[in-house]
Structures are given as structure tokens and as C-alpha cells.
Write a protein that binds this DNA or RNA. Sequence first.
DNA 1: ATCGTGGGATTGTTGAACAATACTTCAATC
DNA 2: GATTGAAGTATTGTTCAACAATCCCACGAT
Lengths: 238, 238
Amino acid sequence: MTATDDLIDRLPEPPEALARATSQAERVADMLRVFVIDGALAPGTRLSEERLSRKYGVSRNTLREAFRLLSRERLLVHQMHRGVFVSHPTSDDVRDLFSVRRTLEIPAVRGARHAPDEAVAAVGAAVAEGEAAREKADWWAMGTANMHFHRALAGLAGSARIDEFMNQVLAETRLVFHVMNAPEQFHAPYLDWNRRIHLRLAERDADGAAAELSRYLDASEEQLVTAFTVMERGSDGS
Amino acid sequence: MTATDDLIDRLPEPPEALARATSQAERVADMLRVFVIDGALAPGTRLSEERLSRKYGVSRNTLREAFRLLSRERLLVHQMHRGVFVSHPTSDDVRDLFSVRRTLEIPAVRGARHAPDEAVAAVGAAVAEGEAAREKADWWAMGTANMHFHRALAGLAGSARIDEFMNQVLAETRLVFHVMNAPEQFHAPYLDWNRRIHLRLAERDADGAAAELSRYLDASEEQLVTAFTVMERGSDGS
DNA sequence: ATCGTGGGATTGTTGAACAATACTTCAATC
DNA sequence: GATTGAAGTATTGTTCAACAATCCCACGAT
């Protein structure tokens, strides 16, 4: 045990990125994930193995690995011998997604008394991001900011697994907006709500923030579900 | 629209299994999952693609698809150009797992007032299963029953996504017991606690049940983390 | 209009090949 | 004696081509 060893031991922890040089399949999955979330691939679209593998110059096997990853995130659904399709959430899914969000977000906010300041600051940053997007009337960016806001709320829990789960849930929630044609103005009314919630958090009024959030989620779910059922009734060819 | 159509519309919903004839990769994943959870494959073990594919008569490509599935469940970890290994959770993971379980289970129990009777009955069934296992001094079965108990608690929330997430969390929790050598007696003291929680639930005293559960989780985490840190200190060759 | 029955297209799985990377061994060096 | 450097070896990453299994669609028979 020399002095050099001591110094090396005191070096900072390795950045997470070091562990994983990304594989081709993951890169393909990342690309497709963006396509799905951004709506370049509409819900219900079938993803042909042959065409995609030719288009992006990867083998079918690699592509299939990417499909598996995204299926696990519920962004794609895989049907035996039929192929993979972009998920097409139903109103039941919407209800389930909100149920999950209530479960994750509200306890996280309520427990925010013990959350580190940076976590609360992340919430504030997302609010600011949303307001900046509203200035520019950039609806798509507003949706993204809203996602970041709720991700930051869940992040107050300080759990890596919850963070990951929440990411999936939010990605799926975004799909819901693509299923309905009227996507992004939905977020606009909620911006002020976001700011109120952050204000409470900043004052460390966790219960107040949680109560606001609860009402927020109720209202948002209500609005989405009604819009959704109307749409489902309409597109149902009976 | 004939009378026949009417009758067909009224037929029960399709059983979930119908949608998915299982693929080979999924079957392999199912098998490996059991191996990992039951401890036939110790944490840290490397899974050689070549040997496994020869042993089980599947191609490397298929095997790799199975690996991806299990990696997503955190039962295996994949390192580029090194292979996949059975996960080896740390005490940090234990804390995170309990954080998740608190987040999922406690709200589910607290909201159990509106849960259907069958969901509460499932909790009772898991308690009975555990007591039967204790009779026979079958520690492994007791662990399984305890898993079922907590899965049933999370099931009170009535969300498909939470059910799935909880399943993963519990599978991972089971891995934790394999990391420590003294695995299954840990469950024994908690059986009576389980029964108390179910009793409160049956009386629809949701808050009381949630309070009991909260104490349960605190105690269980405390016990596991201490055992774990002792062990980590020991195996750390410094 | 409904029900079989093909043919055509797509996915499921395999096996082999080669490239890229990590591990091991051993000699050279300080 | 311990560390470094440079082989060779083993394993994974990715692609490709082939064939089997299954689904979809269109056509014709009832």
C-alpha cells in the first residue's frame, strides 16, 4: 500500500457512462424511440423488419434486439408471426397510466421535505423550460417541458428504479397524445399549475404541493379520458 | 347485425394467453429466470453464450434475445464484450428496492377501501400459503409465499403496470437473499405480521393496515441492510 | 354471404462467418 | 520483485443467408 494507491483510492467515482459503450442495437433502439415519441411513427404502424434493416443498414437480428428493448418499454407491441407495431394505447391504458403516476408522483412530492435542494431545483427548471416554450408558442417543446416537470417530481423520491419506471410511463403518456389528433395545446393550461406546485415545494410545503398535484392529475385524467372515449366511439366502425 | 352477432359480442373477454404464443426466446428467458430466482445460478455468475446455446439447443441469437429480456428485468447485467452476468445487488440496491416497495405497497394498501373483494382475498390466500409452508418447515416455500403476499398488496392498486413493476422488484428482492448466505429464515418472523395486515384489510381498516405495513417494511429493510453491510465489509478484501 | 384453399409475404430460428474487444500469458524492463 | 508491453487466445458483436412456421389475402366453391 503506497502513497500512490491512497491517491488513486480518493479519485472520484467513475461516471456512469463509462460502464457501457453502447451497442448497435441500443443505438437503433434510441433512434426508434425518438421516432415513436415524436410521432414520426404513428401509433398502430407496423415496423417491417426487412425494410427497416435495409433502410438503416443493420441486420435483421440487430433490429430485432432493438425491438425487444422497446417492446419492454411498451412503446412497441410484438405479435407472434405478425411483427411489431407502434403501441396504440386505449382509454383503459390512459386510466392505468394516471393510476401509476398518482402512485409515483404524489408520495414523491409528499416526501419532498427530505429531498435534496437540487431535486427541487430540477422541478423549477422544468417549469421555467415550459414557460419559455409558451413564450415561443412552441407547443411541442411545452409537452417536453411538462414531461420533464413530472419526471422531476418523481425524481424527488431519489430512487433509480422509480426514475426509470417513470420515464417509461411518461414516454407512453406521450404516445397517448399522438393517438388523439389534438395533441399539444392540452399542456398549456397546466403550466400555471406547475408553477404553483413548484412554489409550494420551494417553501417546503410538501403536503400542499401534493394536494395541488392530486387535483392536477384528476383534472388532467378527466380531460384526457373524455377526449379519448369520444374519439374511440367515433373511430369504432359500428 | 343478427342475433348471432349479439351473442358473440357477449362472449367473455379473450384470456390473456391467447394473444401470445410464446416464442423460443421467451421460453428460454422463463427458464433462466427460474434458475436465477431459485439460486441455481449464483449472483455474479457469467452466462457463456456458447455453452448455454449448446446445452439448451438454441442458437446464440435466440439466447441473446432471452438475455435482453432478463437484463431489462435487472436479473442479468450485460457488459459490452464481456458477456452477461447474474446480477449481484449491493446494499444500495436493497435500499432502493425498499424505497420502491414503500412507494408501491403503502398507497395500494391505503387505497384498499375501494379494492374489490377478490383482491383482498388474494392477500389472505398468500398468508395462508405462508402458514402452510411454516407447518412443513419449508423455508423456500415461505419465501415464495411472502413474495405472493406483497405482490397481492401491490395488486390492490388494480394497475397492470404496477403489477408488472412489482413483479420485477420482488424478483430482484429475491436475488438479494441469495447474495446473503442466510436466506430463508429471514421470512419466518414476518408471517404473523402478514396476518395482522390482512386482518386489518379484511375489516377495511386501510389506514391501520398501511401503518402496520410501513413498520413491517422499516423493520425488514433495517434487518437486511445491516446484514448486508456486514457481509459487504467482510467480502471486501481490504 | 360464408367457408375452404391455395399462393405470397413476413416473421422465427438457425448456423456459420468474420470483426471487435477483452482476457491471459510471458518476456522485458525498471 | 513488481510493473509494463506485446504477443496470442477466447468470447462477444454483428452480419448474412437459408429454411421452417405462420399469417394474410384473394380466389373460387358451396
